[in-house]
Design a protein around this nucleic acid. Structure first.
Length: 271
DNA sequence: AGTGCGGCCTGTCCGC
DNA sequence: TGCGGACAGGCCGCAC
């Protein structure tokens, strides 16, 4: 499942492959994604050239002269570069043919991802304009986190995963940051102290930065791989470890539902 | 206004 | 071995 670091890696990997390439054809094989792909997408894209590839949260911006293609990978989405005549794989939904005899393919078994074309500034797009700050920007800080948590009755984990508060913190990183900070996922947001916010902030940043740097090491061949990066799974201390011993105190890790997401925690270390 | 939940999907895993 | 059902997950949009 692509989290922010994977999306960042995807962007950096795609950039040299598509930059300045002209789109010569677009085939929409399966329009039923998270939102139906606009039928006009093909007409909009043909003749456009890739000016830039950028990330905002978990969204990818493909900037072109007359608009921007906004992509989201959902749970299982991926882009890969193929030859136009390569056999289509199951769940290859959108094929974008480039002028150098290559083809950019959007592949997504669960179809939780999306593709949108917009002519306006993508920052003004309805899916983008209300997003919170980037976690690795100066807009995000312990003080900001504290101020936002103070005015919420929700569970702290639900807040961390709320993209209107901060983007790019999914279930994995929220679970890990809470464990490393000793904060119970179900604690009310307004009961998280400033020192705890400083810990949470620092762990979120460190986790994301480390994952991005590790993602970078596999950057070269990711377009050919499925999106199952194994690197972070080796270092996960809480996510997916229910029933196992806590790495710090050996207490059995437990799991609760928070905002419809499984949340693993150590009942001894987190309160 | 803030919060909670339904729904969109398929691959994987489990029990029978 | 085959089959059905539960589960996982990002995130919008609706209902309360």
């Amino acid at each position: 499942m692509p989290e922010l670091p994977e999306v960042e890696t995807v962007c950096q990997g795609l950039k040299p492959l598509v930059m300045n390439r002209l789109i010569t054809a677009v085939d929409i094989i399966e329009p039923r994604l998270r939102w139906p792909v606009q039928p006009s997408l093909a007409d909009c894209l043909v003749g456009q050239r890739f000016d830039a590839v950028a990330r905002r949260g978990k969204y990818i911006f493909f900037r072109m002269p007359q608009g921007t293609l906004i992509g989201h990978l959902g749970m299982t989405g991926s882009f890969r570069l193929t030859r136009p005549d390569d056999a289509r794989k199951k769940h290859d939904h959108v094929l974008i043919t480039l002028d150098n005899h290559s083809q950019l393919r959007y592949h997504d078994p669960r179809r939780f991802g999306s593709l949108h074309w917009t002519q306006e500034d993508p920052e003004h797009h309805r899916l983008i304009c209300r997003l919170g700050p980037e976690p690795l920007s100066t807009q995000f800080s312990a003080d900001y986190l504290y101020a936002r948590l103070q005015r919420s009755q929700k569970a702290v984990k639900a807040c961390l995963m709320d993209h209107h508060l901060v983007v790019g913190v999914g279930n994995i990183y929220a679970t890990e940051a809470l464990f490393l900070s000793g904060v119970h996922p179900q604690r009310s947001a307004y009961q998280v102290s400033l020192p705890d916010c400083e810990k949470l902030y620092q762990h979120i940043v460190t986790l994301l930065e480390r994952a991005i740097s590790l993602g970078g090491t596999t950057l070269k061949d990711f377009v050919n791989a499925n999106d199952q990066p194994g690197y972070f799974q080796q270092t996960l201390l809480a996510y997916g470890r229910q029933g196992q011993a806590c790495s710090a105190c050996q207490t059995e890790m437990q799991s609760v539902q928070v905002a419809q997401r499984s949340s693993v925690f150590c009942p001894q270390c987190q309160s």
